[in-house]
Amino acid sequence: MDTHSISRRPRALGAVTSGPRDLGAVNWRGLWTLYLKEVRRFLNVFTQTLLAPMVTTLLFLAIFALALGGAGREVDGLPYIQFLAPGLIMMTLMQNAFANTSSSIVMAKVQGNIVDVLMPPLSAGELTLGFAAGGVTRGLMVGCAAGAAMSIFVTLPMADPLSVIYHAVNGALMLALLGVIGGIWAEKYDQMAAVTNFVITPFSFLSGTFYSIERLPSDWQFIAHFNPFFYLIDGFRYGFLGRSDGSPLLGYAVVLGVNIALWALAHRMFATGYRLKP
């Protein structure tokens, strides 16, 4: 009787819906919204974010092809251009994954709209995943575009597709996470430019994209093995050509280990609010 009378009362619809939305373990909607924001941000200016890297990569290919004068230069029995192409794809993939997350976070911080990301009910893990996934998406899209454009000029075999995919995804993830970390650390555009100029550009250019590291003096070869980007480029190239400078298995492990460490660091930065929450 009692319950019946309650059910006949007009239901307080407003009161029910204005309560906190029940999110469950993961705020999927929030995560998806953040991811979409990150992706639309670069798709909006696709000339700068997709076409420009593609053209620049082709320019590099052209310069090296011309500088070699068409002579039959070989690296380990492979035509040099074939050796170069996977490295260039990986390099542009990495630089773009980094650019996406780092510029997004630094711009939001400088302009003050970072609160729009910090205020919503998103956990540190969801923030890390949302930003990183945006960077990975851009990196992979640029990589595919550059690869498609290059395959017009260079025949690229595919010796081990799994290795190609593994290194492409992990390379994009590594640089996207580095971009998150760099973006949170930097307080001005100038500091971000310093990270790009002194860390990302040198490490990505000097990681065996343009030459086999066997060409380096032996002390430098030893140092080059401490550059995680070397394993990304080497493993990615292995996936196409079936030859590598380093051991492929070690490469898989190093890449995975570095990514776990970077993920933990990025997660911790979001969780503690380092340089994000005053």
Binding site: A67, L68, F198, L206
Partner: peptide, 14 residues
């Protein structure tokens, strides 16, 4: 920085 890197990679590659 970019110029020095260019110099290094072209030296190493060519």
């Amino acid at each position: 920085m970019t110029s020095l890197i260019f110099l290094a990679i072209f030296q190493l590659a060519l």
